[in-house]
Design a protein around this nucleic acid. Sequence first.
DNA 1: CGTCTACATTGCATGATGCGCAACGCGGAC
DNA 2: GTCCGCGTTGCGCATCATGCAATGTAGACG
Lengths: 267, 267
Amino acid sequence: MSQSIRRAIDLLRRSAEHPLTLTEAADVLGVHKSTALRILQTLESARFVRRTGTGTYVLGSGLIELSELALGSMDLRQLAATQLRILQRETGHTVHLAQLTGDEIIYIDKVDSQAFDAVKLPSRVGRAVSLYASAVGKTILAYLPREERDRLLSHVVFERFTDTTFADRDRLEAELSRIREHGWASDNGEHDAYVMCVAAPIRDFRGHVVAAISITAIEVIASLDKLKANLPTLLETANQISAELGYTSSAAVTPAGRTTAAAGTGG
Amino acid sequence: MSQSIRRAIDLLRRSAEHPLTLTEAADVLGVHKSTALRILQTLESARFVRRTGTGTYVLGSGLIELSELALGSMDLRQLAATQLRILQRETGHTVHLAQLTGDEIIYIDKVDSQAFDAVKLPSRVGRAVSLYASAVGKTILAYLPREERDRLLSHVVFERFTDTTFADRDRLEAELSRIREHGWASDNGEHDAYVMCVAAPIRDFRGHVVAAISITAIEVIASLDKLKANLPTLLETANQISAELGYTSSAAVTPAGRTTAAAGTGG
DNA sequence: CGTCTACATTGCATGATGCGCAACGCGGAC
DNA sequence: GTCCGCGTTGCGCATCATGCAATGTAGACG
């Protein structure tokens, strides 16, 4: 593990939070100022950080560009963008799109509500979602093959964030089978007591659930019951996005009956 | 300039373009595989890259999260977000917001048109805009103080991208004064022959132009004249955003007459 | 107006750190 | 079953990043 790279990353993290002076940067790393300077100069040459007029360092456009490139290559995001925005307009609430990538589920898009609650939501594009204490997380978990779910949850230490958190594996599994019965999930303030969600799964052409969309509001704006009133719209949107991914409803019920793709893994 | 950090950045750039295998990574840097491995492992531990199922490396969520954090802290983006989306809906074309940050002008937001041309546009959030061959770039340049403009253009080597490019300083200055007269700028395929834009300036509370918005289309969708038909809407949106930044029209015409802020730099 | 302090920057000698090498492990192809 | 390409590990060496001390710079204060 390269020391200087790790230090560079630390500085990026810090400078994302607030502008860093050189002395601060050196203190944060516990190194000499000249060392911090050299790291920052290297980052600056790649436009990963930028010097402000006052001499402090902030995140630069090079990093932002890189990130947009990565997000842009996520097909699902492109494909769902319009639908998400329509859903936001129709429901009036904040809309999220979360995707399973590797060992984690991350938000890959977010359409803010015009209401004042938008800023209060802790979600952010690129951030990992709690697997077991969020509507999108539970939705994706619910439809994953058992072994895959085991793999994702193996590293997880359950934590009871609020009264309603499903904070152990058994209770979570019960919730997940309930989700499979209904075809949607809710989040009754399970991570943050005042944040309510309902979510629905997105399926790819094989019928596998690869993502989920949700609508979210803080409780003072809309109770969970009020959000549930939007379920038909939410489910319809999810189905439309699934359809664009090549999903046909027949694929789910009778996976063996697919015309193309031999496969058979599902058997 | 730290060698390993520079190498790490190179790998990030490459992995943003397409998934990297370890051997590729080593070849790209011209180093031994073990060296490349160590760098990638360090990046992976910060979730800047992620290993796919096939063992290749792609950009990770850690980087995306950082970038969103930086973008989120840009007040202007927050403030203008709603207006931009309304403008997109009303005009039907792709809308950009570009801001002067440091020595460059970068796109800080983009609202894609629903039309099929969206994907063909080369613009991307975080990317630097050509100063002299784009409507937003020229708009901001036009209203910058002379010395500031000199500073920005001092590093620039003019290049004639297309027939219509203003490819030397004199012709550019003439164009800029035309922009100041009209109060808006156009881009008649000056960077990419088939891309048309019109742009308008955004002013802060002091009356300084700090950003610009534009509407864009490829020529087969809308000619430059058709875009110009949207100028009233564009200018109105720009003014509304300026107003949210605290700009009052009196500030521009009689900068000395401001009630607050002693200043006097303009005198 | 001069001094002081706090901060950024440069050059250089030192050794910790990142490096290439070679050996090993592994899985897929033929 | 053997071969080949790829990823991984351990290790000794030299390089490259480091800390130090000196210098430069700008604002604060008397």
